[in-house]
């Protein structure tokens, strides 16, 4: 899931390319809409969305961020939020919700707050027209992928903001390199953990840390990425 998107994302070098990559995510993630909205530490905003421009202008014109339960629930937080758990009961909030649904946003949604370095904040949202049962199944299957993808998009946006000449070179610790090397040689996790004299949980956490640094979706993808970047000794 999403490997091709992440490979495309790794090639992105400017905001125009990032916009186009993000806009493909609604198909990749099998949702109605996606929104990525970032506020830098100096207050600069950057947003990409598949929402209809009429709705975006209406939202901004009415300053709906003041009452939007999603924004209010995610600011200064770090746990992902299913729109189901938010309070949509006030009159103004209900009106806002009906307008959003009429504008094609969908009635279901999931939002992931992201805390970047020195006060940078981003919010990644997917929305859908699924019914409750479909949505429950969807979020069970997709949430981890959504969380990872949203953080990788944010890392890329920060990298572009810093300037391409300062693109961060991935550096793995020797233990992370060891773990990926043994997997690349065809060992399973138990064998790799055994030969490094660490527990399998420890190995899994080292692989997961490496996966995040390599912006990879899963273990196989992380091994492939590390190989391509010449980080493994195989």
């Amino acid at each position: 899931m999403l490997e091709s998107f992440l490979d495309r994302l790794s090639q992105v070098g400017n905001l125009d390319d990032l916009d186009s990559a993000i806009l493909t995510l609604s198909d990749e993630l099998n949702v109605e809409h996606v929104v990525y909205h970032s506020v830098s530490s100096s207050g600069e905003q950057y947003a990409v969305t598949t929402y209809h421009p009429t709705w975006v202008n209406h939202y901004l014109g009415n300053d709906y961020a003041r009452i939007d339960p999603v924004v209010l629930a995610c600011l200064r937080r770090f746990h992902p939020v299913d729109w189901k758990r938010l309070d949509w009961s006030g009159k103004a909030t209900r009106n806002f919700m009906h307008e959003a649904i009429d504008a094609g946003v969908g009635s279901q949604g999931y939002s992931i707050p992201i805390r970047g370095p020195s006060g940078q904040f981003a919010l990644f949202t997917v929305s859908s027209r699924d019914n409750d049962d479909q949505w429950t199944t969807y979020t069970q299957d997709y949430t981890r992928s959504l969380i990872l993808a949203s953080h990788f998009v944010n890392q890329k946006a920060l990298e572009i903001e810093r300037g391409t000449d300062q693109a961060e070179i991935v550096s793995l610790s020797p233990r992370e390199t060891d773990a990926l090397t043994l997997l690349a040689l065809g060992m399973n996790r138990a064998q790799a953990a055994d030969s490094l004299s660490i527990s399998e949980h420890t190995l899994r956490v080292y692989i997961e840390s490496a996966r995040f640094k390599l912006a990879a979706m899963n273990t196989t993808h992380a091994v492939a990425r590390a190989m391509n970047q010449g980080l493994l000794r195989v």
Partner: peptide, 8 residues
Amino acid sequence: DGVKIQSP
């Protein structure tokens, strides 16, 4: 073991 544990 020197690993920075980082993951969302």
